[in-house]
Design a protein around this nucleic acid. Structure first.
Lengths: 154, 154
DNA sequence: CTAGTGTAGTCAACCTGGTTGTCGAAAAGC
DNA sequence: GCTTTTCGACAACCAGGTTGACTACACTAG
């Protein structure tokens, strides 16, 4: 059966929502309610060097104001902390707390478990093939977490 | 190479955004700026019988107030029109205008063209296989446009 | 040293697309 | 007929973005 192009888009979205929905639900059940994928992406970006609001905004391709708001919620949730930069009094350097790392690790494990589940259902080699073809179609750029940007509000 | 579960989610999201981004950009270039996937989904639902705000809300799985807001923007863009229901004075029946149909048709064509492009790049039989496996993993529920709901703001 | 330019963070106002709660009017059920 | 349900509207609110304006600080050219 040949599906329409719109169906294909819906399938891709459905797959994403299925994975992300499961992970956020499970994280919530484990006591990390209100963690959104965007928070995870932001923490990853912070951990990998985007340790100021402006830099985070550039990585996530949003305005520095939006990045500052995201940092504010991560701060109040206790997932990051903020200090001054001894070398530049304008900057306020952000770092991921142990609690933040904990959430990132749990999210990673949950995603991996879901992927294992998928591998079990269609066969590991088929899943690898599916990923390979998707990567070819979409380009590696899509795998950069920062590309997730606005669509990750689920 | 075995990717992580999170990468898989990002690949799926990337695929969706790639398709939808191209379609909305092309629609905008053809004079239908500010058409969002959610508008297309809503028009489809309206055309297929969800011709009141309350019913549209149920189909799209959002509140009737949210559905009414969506209808309001479709109204002001001229994609739907609204009249009274002779059988029920509470209802205001919504119907898709020729302009609305035009946008839906163009969107469909653009999605199909994109799918053809993908088929050309990895081979038609591989794309069909990819769709088949995705459908198996995600379930047919994901193909219902109304499942797209909130994540379709791109 | 100083003047000009660029950057970091913050505040305020606004937009979009959702939410809940309340309400009056109309329909439906007993 | 009276009660319950449903429809549409209104208001207040929230999340997560936007732009614009502003201060504090850093850097660089003269």
């Amino acid at each position: 059966m040949t599906r329409s192009g719109a169906d294909l888009a819906l399938l891709l979205l459905g797959g994403y929502r299925s994975l992300v929905g499961s992970v956020t639900a499970e994280l919530a059940a484990r006591g990390h309610a209100d963690v959104r994928p965007v928070h995870d992406f932001a923490m990853r970006a912070i951990a990998s060097g985007a340790d100021t609001a402006s830099e985070l905004g550039r990585r996530l391709e949003v305005s520095k104001q939006a990045a500052a708001k995201t940092i504010a919620v991560l701060l109040e949730r206790g997932y990051v902390r903020r200090g001054t930069d001894p070398d530049d009094a304008r900057r306020k350097r952000v770092e991921v707390t142990p609690l933040g790392w904990e959430v990132m690790h749990q999210g990673e494990e949950l995603f991996d478990a879901l992927r294992d589940e998928w591998a079990r259902r269609i066969g590991p080699e088929r899943l690898v093939e599916l990923e390979r073809q998707l990567a070819e179609l979409v380009g590696d750029a899509a795998v950069r977490p920062e590309a997730a940007g606005g669509a990750a509000q689920d």
